[in-house]
């Protein structure tokens, strides 16, 4: 029997790693990867917990996956548009808006 807590520990560490990637990385695609890790972490929680055999958690996880796909599609389209104009996706160098 696996204690539920261990699922939560793994998810918490995954979430922390995702947030650390988001905060420290300057490359836009890296940041997006970090966000995906954070979403996955939340999904592990939703899937692992089960209250009296209800499937709400699993359904929530399914919707999160759908939203993640939509967000990734729009996100990468915008990142490509940035790359075409700035020739870089380093967020420190994407700095046209000044004042």
């Amino acid at each position: 029997m696996i204690p539920l807590e261990h699922f939560y520990f793994i998810s918490a560490i995954l979430f922390a790693l995702g947030l650390a990637i988001v905060v420290t990385r300057r490359n836009a695609i890296f940041v997006l990867m970090g966000v995906e890790l954070m979403l996955n972490a939340a999904n592990i929680n939703f899937v692992a917990i089960s209250h009296g055999g209800k499937l709400e958690g699993q359904l929530f996880a399914l919707f999160v996956i759908v939203v993640a796909a939509a967000e990734a599609a729009v996100g990468l389209a915008i990142i490509l548009a940035v790359y075409r104009r700035f020739k870089t996706i380093n967020l420190d160098k994407v700095n046209e808006i000044t004042d």
């Binding site: 539920l4 807590e5 699922f7 520990f9 979430f15 947030l19 650390a20 055999g53």
Partner: peptide
Amino acid sequence: LALGLASLLCYGIMRMNLGLLKE
């Protein structure tokens, strides 16, 4: 950052009293 956040979250989880996975 990852280490700090993870330990905070794990501390929170330990106080949650979760029990076992439904088999």
